[in-house]
């Protein structure tokens, strides 16, 4: 198992999907933030983070995700998460991410609810 996080971006009509693979820690969180802010600066206002291949997130990673959510909300946009492991899902609920971002079981439902092209 490797600690490095990789992010893939899929620009779609209506927004973008970020696919993460690996550990969302400080380094991984910053990687996601950089990609998210690039997209926001490019006018993207709907972001879906698909965490299917992420099994671990720590508190630093969570605080960075919260910053991304806040920034998107300030800009009038919205962020969703999908395909979370049960552990990460519970973590997001306790840490309050679920109050500001939508969480979906699968990408299809998320894309439909967020208005992203499939």
């Amino acid at each position: 198992m490797n600690e490095e996080l990789r992010v893939a971006v899929d620009r779609r009509s209506g927004g973008a999907v970020l696919y993460t693979k690996g550990y969302i820690n400080n380094v991984g969180g910053e990687e996601i933030a950089n990609r998210a802010y690039e997209l926001m600066n490019d006018g993207v206002r709907v972001l879906l983070l698909n965490l299917r291949e992420t099994k671990i997130v720590n508190s630093i990673g969570i605080s960075i995700l919260i910053e991304i959510i806040e920034k998107m909300i300030e800009q009038g946009g919205k962020i969703g998460f999908c395909c979370l492991t049960p552990v990460i899902h519970k973590t997001f609920q306790i840490m309050g991410l679920a109050n500001y971002a939508s969480i979906f079981a699968d990408e299809e439902t998320a894309a439909k609810e967020l208005g992203l092209a499939a």
């Binding site: 198992m1 600690e3 550990y23 997130v57 720590n58 630093i60």
Partner: peptide, 30 residues
Amino acid sequence: LFRMISLINARRAALFLRDGAGFRLYRSFG
């Protein structure tokens, strides 16, 4: 490993299990 890493904000972790008189690496992250 997953739980331990996230619990203490570590970057790497390893689990060693008893193998005779020593401890053999069973699983690692990093």
